[in-house]
């Protein structure tokens, strides 16, 4: 087996990845070498997986792979419904007499990667999900007037922060909540009240306030607007809330635009037991980065990009460009599995399966229908997958981004189809 592994590892090419199975299976211990890994800049925050061993979570609260993928599906459905709504609204935008209902909630299930930030004076450390698919930053707040779920760190208490203040009703920041959350703000004894609801029925409601946000010891944001949640329920794991990295004026990207010039970057680790980073500002962006343009005409929340073509094992898939352009494309840090238009998925899956015939197939799981039983292998050879984005920017997906490992006997192609070509 060792000799076969050496032979496989020596045969790495642009058409195949050779992967050690142990490198993609979920780890049970936080990787101490990655913990000590130097962050790329003083403005970088450590990123950990929500259900990985680097975040203190009760084992009993860890979801199964099927549950995780079901949650992912609910996020995808809600993204599609939001974009459909936005498209319908744009269609009628020029007709004054047409009145559409307000967006029925932001509809975004919780993402999977966390950063720890400090809130208040003195600061309290809070682990927040970071999400490029939503705008509002919120955390659970004492006294939890209605309901708080169990979180790993102590719940933020605004009465113990000298810099906290509530935002008054009718102020520009309060009025901005309508576009940031999809819901009109409420008012309680002149304090602005926010409400954000997600597609899986998770929600947070509370007072809209501002306080000092400490990203790193050298990066402090005074008067940062955020939601102080008094009624919080849903699939947020044991995190303290969420940090919104989309494009609305209330997102952290826009609130810190003077400090960081509306630029941020992240790197997600290959395993959930390792750490990555989230960095604000341009200074530490690698010169080797290849760019594709955003389309900013479709609302302020999602980051729309263009996908032009896909390659499997170095061979271009025969997919009509209209397959990708019909409904468009977004990038999202909170969706786990990439969703493709049905025709693109079928072409990708068939090409992948064709090059994987030497491995026994395994049982499908949830939305993943192309799984392999690698229990008898230490190392496997899988075809490369590349995507051409707008501007002819070709990106080779890392080996760890092609497979989703539930167990050694159930390692699946980490792509899934949308239910409809127009999704």
């Amino acid at each position: 087996a060792a000799a076969a592994d050496r032979k496989l590892l020596a045969s790495e090419s642009h058409e195949f990845h050779t992967i050690k199975l142990s490198s993609i299976l979920p780890g049970s211990v936080c990787d101490s070498s990655s913990q000590g890994h130097k962050l790329p800049s003083p403005s970088s925050l450590k990123v950990v997986h929500k259900h990985g061993p680097c975040h203190k979570t009760k084992e009993s609260s860890l979801p199964s792979a099927s549950e995780l993928l079901a949650t992912d599906e609910s996020r995808v459905k809600s993204i599609n419904s939001r974009i459909s709504f936005s498209a319908a609204r744009n269609t009628f935008a020029s007709t004054d007499s047409v009145r559409l209902p307000a967006k029925s909630g932001s509809s975004l299930g919780a993402g999977n990667y966390l950063v720890q930030v400090g809130l208040g004076t003195p600061k309290k450390d809070l682990s927040l999900i970071f999400d490029t698919g939503s705008d509002l930053t919120w955390t659970q707040c004492e006294p939890c007037a209605r309901s708080c779920y169990d979180q790993a760190e102590p719940i933020f208490d605004p009465s113990k922060s000298s810099a906290y203040s509530n935002v008054s009703c009718g102020t520009p920041a309060c009025n901005q909540l309508k576009s940031a959350t999809g819901n009109s703000p409420g008012c309680n004894t002149n304090t602005c009240v926010y409400g954000i609801q997600y597609g899986d029925q998770s929600f947070s409601v509370g007072f809209f306030g501002k306080d000092t946000l400490t990203l790193t010891p050298t990066d402090v944001v005074p008067n940062f607007f955020f939601g102080c949640g008094q009624n919080n329920q849903g699939l947020f794991g044991q995190t303290a809330g969420l940090i919104g990295l989309a494009r609305d004026p209330l997102s952290i990207v826009q609130q810190t635009s003077k400090q960081y010039g509306q630029v941020f970057s992240y790197c997600l680790p290959s395993r959930s037991s390792e750490t990555g980073s989230l960095t604000f500002g341009q200074s530490y962006v690698s010169k080797a980065v290849k760019y594709t343009p955003f389309s900013s005409s479709q609302g302020t929340t999602f980051y729309f990009i263009d996908v032009l073509a896909m390659f499997v094992g170095g061979q271009k898939l025969q997919i009509s460009p209209t397959v990708f352009s019909t409904a468009g494309s977004i990038i999202d840090s909170g969706t786990v599995i990439t969703r493709l238009p049905p025709a693109a998925y079928t072409a990708l899956r068939d090409a992948f399966r064709k090059q994987m015939t030497s491995y026994p197939m395994g049982k499908p799981v949830s939305i993943l229908d192309t799984c392999y039983d690698f229990s008898k292998y230490n190392t496997v050879k899988i075809p490369t997958i590349s995507i051409i984005f707008g501007g002819n920017t070709k990106i080779d997906i890392d080996g760890s981004g092609i497979l989703y490992a539930v167990s050694s006997s159930q390692v699946c192609l980490a792509f899934a189809p949308n239910s409809d070509a127009s999704d």
């Binding site: 999977n112 630029v263 999202d332 840090s333 969706t335 949308n418």
Partner: peptide
């Protein structure tokens, strides 16, 4: 829509240049 999810973003430096209206990918970012 096609949604480019986080599994496929692993190990890349993903750069959101919102002011410049562009998204960047850098191989082996972590």
């Amino acid at each position: 829509v096609l949604i480019y999810g986080n599994v496929q973003q692993k190990t890349m430096q993903v750069v959101y240049d919102v002011a410049g209206n562009k998204l960047g990918f850098g191989a082996k970012g972590c």
